[in-house]
Design a binder for these strands. Structure first.
Lengths: 359, 359
DNA sequence: TTGTACGCGTTATCAA
DNA sequence: TTGATAACGCGTACAA
């Protein structure tokens, strides 16, 4: 492995000058610089980033902790993060926590060990161990789910969106609206359940119409099956995630029920297949990619030191309710008519508006 | 930042002993080891991984270069890789190349700079610059797409699977079978086209029935639209990827055509929505997750030095043709009947068989 | 403008 | 079994 001192020797200069030349420091004599560059080329010199990182006392790596890249929502978030990172010279470590606090803690330990420049975190539970990172100078930005420890946060108004969705189902005339949400303790799962309860009213929203399950296809399937097999089955479902929605559709098919006709449906996340099924699925579209880019931009300011002393920032993005066939109640007319309307969960906003609040 | 020497001083030992104690070296006196551990705890000591990496001359990081995490196929691959990595103490850097040679080269440079322990690569073109990594001692395993530079490779028999799929369409009685494949130069795109040509015969497989497009929804949509708008439109389509398939379905709808009835369809990748549309989509199911885990296992052996001097290995996994409604030709009977059969692309294999060959 | 010398924090070597 | 010492490869005060 050829190192900097080799290049320096060949160019007939000191390692210091070689270092400066290769890093484009302007004070170095052009002639020398050229000699150094040539030596580096002919020796096929590759700088050692690890040594540089040690010396510089920083790295150009971020850690991204999400529940699961297989979840299309997080895939989009990850892509957004990666795009911003790459455009600014950072690399990102992908960490799947599977909503597991132990895995999460382990990844945070790795992030600290590897001295990453910053962390983007979608915590599985409120009390994750991100505080120590922040204390040791590593900025942490939370994505999708809030963290008391995070410096900044980029969130979606899950509660408002879930409320609007449930209200929409009620207004369409569905009688018993149930809710299939994520695991207990997961912020977005709780918020969506809360929004649902806002709409249906606490008394009627007793346990019999609520199911918690993992944010997976199988989670959705079994939750829906359990609801449909109960004594008083619902006639409409609010589903907290697109993977779950796939399972719900399977459960409906297993029970011989047609969505939109027998059972109303609204699901979170605008999956690409949601307009290909019949009828199309009414969804709460979340700006997942933008969630990633915005969080990355906030982190960028922090790691660059541009936002030191800036108080914690929280960006709340709006979700949009896209009304399609699955939530429309069949009247006399054909229930399979498919209309698409955009309704913002925040009155007056057009769905692309962004709230930026300090906390 | 408290460092090792601080711990050593507090424990009244040398840094060397402190290091040994913290790393669980057995030769250290239990009493001393305990003192070190206590000191480390009370000082809240966190080792500096960067310094350790420099001294050890190795890191515990892999780089994973894929076209795009947003592509569900690669998402599954990434998840497979990450699971194996995490279980063995490695972290993975996620790199989206977008089939862009420049981006790919840049990421490979980062991988070398950061001295990653190994690279998992799905090259966009045959001649990528992975050779230099291998020369400098970094093992590279190619995933999904072969690379002349890679040490090992884990692939799928795309050509055989595409051939079987096209043959299936012909046997069902579709007259003009077209092919929508990926960008020129991308190995899997070429292999699938080749398999298609194997089946339909080179003469009839002239350009008029072949379209190349990006592996995206929009790529599939416009390719299908172009085919359907041509003078002699096809009556069946072989589509090389599930994102493209979504676009193709959209194009069919735009043209007022029903798959399975007006147009036969087989698509690569068994997306979760493929059984939810009507009729269900016949697919070539690729073992994407397993592709990731297998590649990771091969890399693991290399980075551990267990497979030094072992010649390059190529693992070829089988894809399975899952026959469903979209490829069945409507006869007198209802074309929407949905059957699901499993046919291996390799005669005699059950679809889970694996060929391991040396090259 | 260039060179010398040191330090980043850890681990491996070697002698005791 | 322990400790002193020397790297690992680079960047950067400081002095020249």
């Amino acid at each position: 492995m050829t190192k900097l001192s080799d290049v320096a020797r060949m160019a007939g200069v000191s390692p210091a000058t070689a270092s400066r030349a290769l890093n484009g420091v302007s004070t170095v004599d052009p002639a020398l610089a050229r000699r150094v560059l040539e030596a580096a080329t002919s020796l096929d010199y590759r700088p050692n980033g690890v040594a540089r990182n040690l010396r510089r006392r920083r790295t150009d790596v971020w850690a991204l902790l999400i529940a699961d890249v297989s979840n299309p929502f997080f895939t989009a978030v990850a892509r957004g993060v990666e795009d911003i990172a790459q455009a600014n010279g950072y690399s990102v470590l992908l960490c799947n926590t599977d909503e597991d606090a132990a895995k999460e803690a382990q990844y945070l330990a790795v992030a600290e060990l590897e001295q990453v420049a910053g962390v983007l975190l979608s915590p599985s539970a409120p009390g994750c161990g991100a505080a120590r990172l922040v204390r040791s100078g590593i900025p942490v930005v939370s994505v999708d789910r809030p963290s008391p420890d995070a410096v900044d946060a980029v969130l979606v108004d899950s509660r408002g969106a879930a409320g609007a969705a449930a209200r929409h189902l009620l207004e369409e005339g569905w009688g018993r609206v149930a809710c299939v949400t994520g695991p207990e303790g997961v912020a977005t799962a709780e918020e969506r359940l809360r929004g649902y309860r806002d709409a249906v009213g606490a008394p009627s929203a007793d346990g019999s119409l609520v199911r918690r399950a993992p944010f997976t296809v199988e989670g959705g399937r079994s939750a829906a099956a359990s609801l449909l097999d109960s004594d008083e089955p619902p006639d409409a479902l609010l589903v907290a995630n697109s993977l779950m929605a796939l399972g719900v559709l399977r459960a409906l098919a297993d029970h011989g029920l047609r969505m939109g006709a027998d059972v109303g449906l609204v699901a979170f996340d605008d999956a690409p297949w949601s307009t290909l099924v019949e009828p199309a699925v009414t969804v709460v579209a979340q700006p997942a990619y933008e969630l990633g880019t915005r969080a990355a931009q906030l982190l960028l300011e922090r790691v660059r030191g541009e936002a030191t002393d800036v108080p914690a920032r929280t960006v709340v993005l709006d979700a949009r309710l896209l009304v399609r066939g699955s939530s429309r109640r069949p009247a006399g007319v054909d229930a399979r008519t498919c209309q698409s309307t955009s309704i913002s969960s925040t009155p007056g906003a057009d769905g692309r508006d962004v709230d930026v609040r300090s906390r």
